[in-house]
Amino acid sequence: MPENEEQPRSPHHPHDKGYRQLLADKRVFLELLKTFVREEWVEAIDANELILVNKSYVLQDFSEKEADIVYRLKTRDKNVIFYVLLELQSTVDYLIPFRLLLYMVEIWREIYNNTPQHERESKHFHLPPIVPAVLYNGANNWTAPSTFKEMLDSYQDFSGHLLDFRYLLFDVNRYSEEELIKAANLIAGVFLLDQKMQPEDLARRLQKLAGILKRLTHDEFRHFTTWLKNVVKPRMPEDFREKVDRILDASNPWEVERMIYNLEITLEEMQQQALLKGKMEGKMEGKMEGKMEVAKNMLLLGIEMETIARATGLAPDEIATLKKQMEQ
């Protein structure tokens, strides 16, 4: 496949941007495979053999979807090319086996069309294997079919004759905290912070990752802070985002504790602001309820609406609405 392909389009979901930027680094992508896939072919991969395919495979029937990350792998001992296809998901997609198949066929079609006719008609011509994978970070359990054949009606009746494959599933919220901390690498740390949690848990988890973050290279650490900007920062109130940017931009691996401390202070300020806002809104609601109660009592006494408006500060139309409600 030509390597000077069109550049991938921007991902449809803002959250995907964080993972796309992270996994576009072949070292991080390989770390993902070697951390969570226990298969021999993974252990044999050399990072130098991985090539990111700069093309988005947008399907006609799924125009709002795209194959997010595609890597080509040429092994050292065989003239074989693997295509490791990774699809990012934040919700359960029950059509995922079918969509993955369409992506795979699209890649094979392109390889076939780009192979000279005399080569592809030779008995030695083989299509490369494609290993499909899904990275899912939704809170609900992943309940989509894990194999393609499960999408076929009455597939049990035709075993041995049907096309089938099983995709790899990286289910972010199903890995335990202990497992991710034990892995002690960038991708596991990212998964830990991406799991469903309360805002106050972020600082605690960062503290647990401090030792891991210190050992990251400068490039890995920058991947980590960029991911935080893309994924964690949007969850915060807008007036705190610029402060988070400044903290992350000034951070480095050898001053992780300072970064975590500054983020922790910012999170505390954010929580205090949210608490104060809640109290103020509660007081305003209580004050309005009090005014309405006074207006109601004055209406029962037959006092004119203009007088009630001056006494309570309520608008005439609010008093008129209240009067209609009382008359029903």
Rank of each mutant, 00 (worst) to 15 (best):
E3K: 10
P316Y: 00
V131M: 04
L135W: 03
R9E: 04
K296S: 12
R222A: 13
G282V: 02
K17V: 04
R241K: 15
I96G: 01
R204P: 03
L100V: 10
N297W: 03
P129W: 07
P316K: 09
F62N: 10
N4M: 12
A203R: 01
K324Q: 15
Y57R: 08
D68R: 10
E178Y: 02
E5S: 12
N252M: 15
L162A: 02
P129Y: 11
E220F: 12
H223P: 06
A309W: 05
T115P: 05
L299M: 10
L50F: 01
T143Y: 05
T225Q: 05
R76T: 13
V84P: 01
E177W: 12
H223M: 06
T266R: 08
A320D: 08
Q156P: 05
F240G: 01
A295V: 09
D171L: 04
L88Y: 03
M288Q: 09
K34C: 02
L100Y: 02
T312V: 13
D245E: 09
M288C: 06
D194R: 05
L73M: 10
I260G: 10
A203I: 05
P97S: 03
N48L: 10
P128V: 03
P253D: 04
D16L: 13
E264W: 07
S176C: 14
R99L: 02
D93T: 00
D164W: 07
S63A: 12
D61A: 11
F165L: 06
K287D: 00
E49Q: 15
A309G: 09
N141V: 05
G160K: 14
K74I: 11
T75N: 08
E318Q: 12
T217H: 11
L102T: 07
V53T: 00
Q7H: 07
K149F: 02
K214W: 00
D157T: 02
E289P: 10
E121M: 14
D201T: 02
W41H: 05
R204L: 10
K324R: 15
V80H: 07
P145W: 13
L186I: 02
M270H: 07
V131C: 00
A44I: 02
V58Q: 10
L52F: 09
Y167R: 12
H15M: 13
R246P: 02
N230C: 13
H118M: 09
L263I: 15
L300C: 03
K296H: 11
E242S: 11
N113K: 15
I265W: 01
L86D: 00
A203H: 04
L101F: 14
E119I: 13
R235E: 04
A210K: 13
G290V: 06
L299Y: 01
Q195S: 09
D157I: 00
N137A: 05
M236V: 08
L86Y: 09
